[in-house]
Structures are given as C-alpha cells and as structure tokens.
C-alpha cells in the first residue's frame, strides 16, 4: 500500500461548473483543484471533457460524497471501480470521502449522516476502510463532516472516534476546520480540544469553507467567506501538522473565480505570517447570520446541471 501523501499541493479550489469557462480561458495560477467525484465518474459529456483538460494543467484530488463508509449496506464495488478508473485517467493525487453514512437498505439520502461514536462502529468502519484501500490500491483520506445530531449510543468524543478510525485503518485525515467549528457549536465541545486531540501526522489535507450561524446551531452551507474564528482554528491546527494541502469549498452563491481563489490565498498569507505561541487558543467567537436561515442547506450537493447547455 502506498504511503500517505505528505507533500503539500499548496492552496486549491473546489472545481465547480460555473467556473469552467474562466479556468479554461484564463488558466488562473491556482495550485490545484478538488472535484466532487460523483459529478464525473459517470460523465460521458462535457463535464468529463472539461475535467480532462483541467487535469492536464493542474493536480486534481477526487473528493466523494457517496462512499457511505459507515453504512451497514454492502460496499458498492461498481462505484469503487468507477472511482478507481477515473483516478487513473486523471492522475488523481488522492481520493477522499467522509467519515459518515449516506443511506441504508439501498436508499440514499444524499446527506452526510453522522455515526454513533463507539467501539463497535469504530471496528465496523475500520474493516470497511481497509477493504476500500485494498481495492483502490491507495490510502483513503477521510473527512470529518459537519453534523447536527449526536447519538445516545456514543461513548467516544468525535476526536477520539476520528483518531481510532484513521489510526486503526491506517488511512489519512482530511481535516475540515470549518466542520470542526460547526460541530463544536452544535455539540457543545471545545474545537481546540478537538484539534489538539487528533493525530496530526495523519492530516493529509485541510478544508476551509463558510457556514451559516442560525443562533441555536450552525449549518455547513459553503456559501460565503471563511470567518475569523475558523481562520484561528486553521492556524492552530497547521502549527501542529505543518503546512498541508489546503482547499476552499464554495458551493452556494458562488462568486466569480478570482473571488474564490483570493479567499483560499488568505491561507497562504496566514501561514507565511509570524508564528504565534503554539499553545495560543483564541476564544471561538460566533457570528450569527442576520438574514433568514430558512433556506440554509448543508453542502456539498453533488450535481452538475446542464443548464445553459439545454
């Protein structure tokens, strides 16, 4: 089994259809792109055609939303085979998905649903990750998702659960610091305790994104800029892991590409600035959203529409 990717790809952006034309025309100086795997593994049309062109110019990471590694349904080897073929075709740097489940009994909610965090589920997930890694012939990188419920059957903290899974399965961790912030609000834990408690040497990649603070809870909407408390968490985490490939997700109210790119470049500025005391833990501050949160939807949604091409 190849080792976990250690070298940073730099500062990347999630590839979204609305930016295809700009990227192909301008070849912006972005370090790398992350794709939503499900938008391309079955494509025989323009999305895959565009992806092939972009993959010739930039490193690509495949990020999935349907592996459902924590489900009790059998693993879908047809799906995994498609992932493997696309990864080979575009020379994907690595393949990631979420530490979650998305459906059961053959049904799919298309949401990243949380798992109960206990010994039984740790063993269940480790076994499945090992099968997936054997099949793909490369390490799987798992992301901590945002979540909105916890279970009475949980006996471990989330950072203990994440640590047990990634170390037991010998896989990588895609650390989404925005998700840590969102879940810390929703589940009343200290995000710095989370970041101090995870295995830093297994962090392969970071995710950054905006969210919506609804007052009583936060939703991972990927619809805006990264807020300062999340930048604080990112700085705190990278002081422990060293620089890792960092990616900005922006999936709703998507601005022009230069705006998205500029947002992730803030991470580069932040990392090139003076280091602070590594024990420094700024107090997480909330930034409640003033507009209506009725339509706040968790992201990512994995769908490339043909609108505009109809």
């Amino acid at each position: 089994m190849p080792e976990l990717p250690r070298d940073s790809l730099g500062f990347g952006v999630g590839l979204r259809a609305t930016h295809y034309a700009h990227i192909l025309r301008e070849s912006p100086p972005v370090d790398w792109f992350e794709i939503i795997s499900e938008n391309y593994i079955d494509s025989q049309g323009r999305p895959r055609h565009v992806l092939r062109q972009i993959a010739e110019r930039y490193p690509i990471v495949m990020h999935g939303v349907s592996l459902s590694i924590g489900s009790t349904d059998p693993l879908d080897f047809e799906y995994l085979g498609k992932l493997k073929r696309l990864a080979h075709e575009i020379g994907a740097a690595w393949i990631s998905d979420h530490l979650c489940w998305t459906g059961v009994a053959g049904r799919n909610t298309h949401d990243l649903l949380p798992l109960p965090m206990n010994d039984t589920v740790v063993s269940h997930v480790i076994e499945r990750v090992k099968v997936v890694q054997d099949f793909l012939g490369r390490p799987l990188i798992l992301e901590n998702p945002s979540s909105y419920v916890t279970f009475t059957s949980s006996t471990l903290s989330e950072w203990e659960f994440v640590t047990r899974v990634v170390e037991g399965a010998d896989c990588g961790l895609l650390l989404d610091v925005n998700n840590v912030f969102v879940s810390s609000v929703n589940h009343d834990f200290d995000p710095y305790e989370y970041l101090a408690g995870i295995p830093h040497d297994r962090v392969t990649q970071y995710h950054l994104a905006g969210h919506t603070d609804c007052g009583t809870h936060c939703i991972d909407t990927h619809d805006g800029a990264v807020i300062d408390p999340v930048w604080d968490l990112y700085r705190y985490a990278t002081e422990r892991t060293g620089e890792r490939s960092t990616l900005l997700e922006w999936d709703a109210n998507i601005p022009p590409f230069p705006v998205v790119h500029a947002e992730v470049l803030k991470a580069r500025e932040l990392l090139s600035g003076p280091r602070r005391d590594v024990e420094s833990r700024p107090t997480p501050r909330r930034q409640p959203t003033t507009h209506s949160t009725d339509r706040a939807l968790p992201h990512p949604l994995s769908f490339v529409v043909s609108a505009g091409d109809k």
Binding site: P74, W101, H124, R128, S153
Partner: peptide, 18 residues
C-alpha cells in the same frame, strides 16, 4: 463488508434514522 450481522444495532439505528 456488509456488516449486516455484526452490526445489528447500527443497522437498526440507520434504518430508523433513514
């Protein structure tokens, strides 16, 4: 890989939550 037998409790919880 199905975990259908060894994770009966998880399977039932997932079916309920779905």
């Amino acid at each position: 890989v199905s975990g259908a037998n060894s994770n009966f409790g998880l399977q039932q919880l997932q079916r309920w939550l779905y």
